[in-house]
Simulated assay, not measured.
Amino acid sequence: MKAVRVHEYGKPPTLDDIPDPVVQGPLDVIVKVDAAGVCRTDLHIIEGQWADKSGVELPYVIGHENAGTVQEVGAAVSTVAPGDKVILHPLVTCGLCRACRAGDDVHCADSRFPGIDTDGGMAEYLRTSVRSIVKLDDGLAPADVAALADAGLTAYHAVRKAVPLLHPADRVVMIGAGGLGHIGLQCLVAMTPSRVTVVDRSQEVLDKALALGAHATVLSDGSQVEQVLEQTGGEGAQVVLDFVGENGTEADGVAMTRNSGSYFVIGYGGTIDVPTIDVISREINIVGNLVGSYNDLADLMELAAQGRVRLATQQYSLNDALTALDDLDGGRVPGGRAILTS
């Protein structure tokens, strides 16, 4: 099969011919990957940012946002069958540890993360576990939802954690409404009555945010913190969701957060530098967000089936994977997600 593999950090991956995956255990499922999301994390992997954390042996196949068609199943699989359209939770989990039994499978003690620490789905086929599979509603196609497997799941997970902190009179600020943020915005609009302000450096993205239900926008032109404070009566927002997490948004996000409020970090790449006395005196919370649980993904697919969360996509063939990665790196996928189709 064809697969996009990293051979050396700091150098572009290559499109290789490698053996097809095969069923190895009773809970295994082989999925024909009809659609694979291209994520900024893939760029960070290629750069080498994940080398120490993942410990993966090179070369390996990247791609952690996958949806497709069940091709073959292990002997103990009874909940899906060949031909089923599915989306894959990005983690392959054990189901036996305390975290899994508590429904917190994202912190499984014995998990694999295809595309991060083992072969992923920028390929024609992928081996996963039945525990990772969510069947798609008949009205959903793999290419329409693939990037929701990680980007959408992460956005939903952060919003779900923020919802209990919000009341109808509260203000939420979102930094970044592009590929990741536009999903988070739709989740916010669907799940909370609070007023949402979107901050972005692109006027085109801000216009799209208004169309998706944002109540107000702020152009990131150097005065974004002052504009947000003006909108919030000088207090800042109860919740700030930072879908960028680098290039200065970290400092902006903390400055936009009201006293006793919460700054949610979703995008990454930068550094948060906050004096501890400010954390204490302002009593602010800094909240990290990894990917969501299996149940989060199932809930997100329900919102997608209801038409309340839609993914803006720019599609490429698997053969054009390197172009898609380069376009993402060059900012040529505005306001949506790049998707590889096969």
Rank of each mutant, 00 (worst) to 15 (best):
A102P: 03
V198L: 09
D28L: 10
C108M: 03
A141V: 06
A3C: 03
P164D: 00
Q49H: 15
D34M: 03
T341W: 02
F113C: 00
A151R: 06
R101A: 15
E302H: 03
M191A: 03
Q231F: 10
G236W: 12
G115S: 02
T249Q: 01
V33H: 01
G222P: 07
L229K: 14
G25P: 09
P26F: 05
A35N: 06
Y156E: 09
C108V: 02
C187W: 00
D20G: 08
G261S: 03
I272V: 15
I46W: 10
Y9P: 05
V6N: 12
V279P: 00
A141E: 15
G25W: 09
D242Y: 07
N295G: 03
L91F: 15
V22K: 15
S132A: 14
D278A: 07
C100N: 07
V279H: 11
V38H: 10
R5G: 13
G48F: 09
S220F: 04
D326I: 02
G63Q: 04
A211F: 02
V279C: 10
S260H: 15
M301A: 11
R40S: 12
V172Q: 10
G181R: 05
A147M: 10
E246D: 01
E65D: 03
Y268H: 14
G288V: 05
T249G: 05
V73C: 11
D84P: 08
G236P: 12
D105R: 06
A305M: 04
R131K: 13
V70E: 01
P193E: 08
D105F: 09
A177M: 02
Y268V: 13
S342M: 02
V196D: 08
L188E: 08
A237S: 11
P114A: 05
G120D: 06
A305T: 05
E204Q: 15
Y263W: 11
E235W: 13
D42M: 05
G222K: 01
H64V: 02
G336A: 08
V265L: 04
S223T: 15
H89G: 05
G74A: 07
L96I: 12
V134T: 13
D42L: 05
G68K: 09
